[in-house]
Simulated scan of single mutants.
Amino acid sequence: MMKKRSVVLGLVTILLATTAVGCSSGSSTSSSNNSNSSAKKEAGITMDQFNKINLDENNGTSLDDLKKELGKPSSTSTSTVQTQTVDLNTWSKGLGNSLAVGFSNGHAISKHINGLKVNRKNKITLDSFGQVQNGQSEDDVKKMLGDPNGINTSTIAGTTITILTYTSGLKGSLGSNATVTITNGAVSGESQSGLE
Score class of each variant (00 low, 15 high):
residue 96 G to P: 13
residue 100 A to R: 06
residue 33 N to I: 09
residue 100 A to I: 04
residue 52 K to Y: 10
residue 72 K to E: 10
residue 84 Q to S: 12
residue 97 N to C: 06
residue 113 I to P: 07
residue 116 L to V: 15
residue 46 T to R: 14
residue 88 L to A: 01
residue 101 V to K: 11
residue 72 K to V: 13
residue 38 S to I: 04
residue 68 K to P: 02
residue 90 T to M: 06
residue 86 V to D: 06
residue 70 L to R: 15
residue 40 K to T: 06
residue 41 K to P: 12
residue 83 T to D: 05
residue 95 L to W: 08
residue 49 Q to F: 01
residue 109 I to M: 03
residue 90 T to I: 05
residue 90 T to R: 09
residue 110 S to W: 13
residue 81 V to A: 14
residue 99 L to T: 01
residue 39 A to N: 09
residue 99 L to G: 05
residue 75 S to F: 11
residue 72 K to G: 02
residue 84 Q to H: 13
residue 66 L to Q: 04
residue 49 Q to V: 11
residue 100 A to E: 02
residue 113 I to H: 07
residue 32 S to D: 06
residue 81 V to T: 15
residue 94 G to T: 08
residue 82 Q to K: 15
residue 82 Q to P: 10
residue 35 S to G: 05
residue 53 I to C: 03
residue 64 D to K: 15
residue 33 N to D: 08
residue 72 K to P: 05
residue 63 L to A: 10
residue 34 N to H: 08
residue 36 N to V: 11
residue 53 I to E: 01
residue 40 K to S: 00
residue 78 T to H: 12
residue 117 K to Y: 00
residue 54 N to I: 04
residue 103 F to T: 05
residue 106 G to Y: 10
residue 116 L to S: 05
residue 115 G to V: 07
residue 75 S to T: 09
residue 111 K to I: 00
residue 95 L to T: 05
residue 100 A to Q: 06
residue 49 Q to G: 00
residue 103 F to V: 06
residue 74 S to F: 12
residue 33 N to P: 07
residue 105 N to E: 02
residue 100 A to Y: 07
residue 33 N to K: 15
residue 93 K to Y: 05
residue 38 S to A: 10
residue 88 L to Y: 14
residue 48 D to C: 02
residue 78 T to I: 13
residue 40 K to H: 03
residue 78 T to E: 06
residue 40 K to Y: 02
residue 61 T to P: 04
residue 85 T to C: 11
residue 67 K to Q: 14
residue 97 N to K: 12
residue 62 S to W: 14
residue 30 S to V: 10
residue 51 N to K: 04
residue 104 S to M: 14
residue 35 S to E: 09
residue 107 H to M: 00
residue 85 T to E: 15
residue 65 D to C: 09
residue 34 N to A: 07
residue 107 H to Q: 01
residue 117 K to P: 02
residue 108 A to H: 05
residue 31 S to Q: 07
residue 76 T to L: 11
residue 77 S to A: 13
residue 97 N to V: 00
residue 41 K to Q: 10
residue 50 F to C: 04
residue 56 D to F: 08
residue 41 K to M: 03
residue 107 H to S: 02
residue 49 Q to D: 01
residue 85 T to F: 15
residue 91 W to G: 04
residue 42 E to Y: 13
residue 71 G to C: 08
residue 67 K to I: 13
residue 50 F to G: 00
residue 42 E to F: 10
residue 85 T to H: 15
residue 73 P to A: 04
residue 95 L to K: 14
residue 88 L to W: 14
residue 55 L to Y: 07
residue 37 S to L: 10
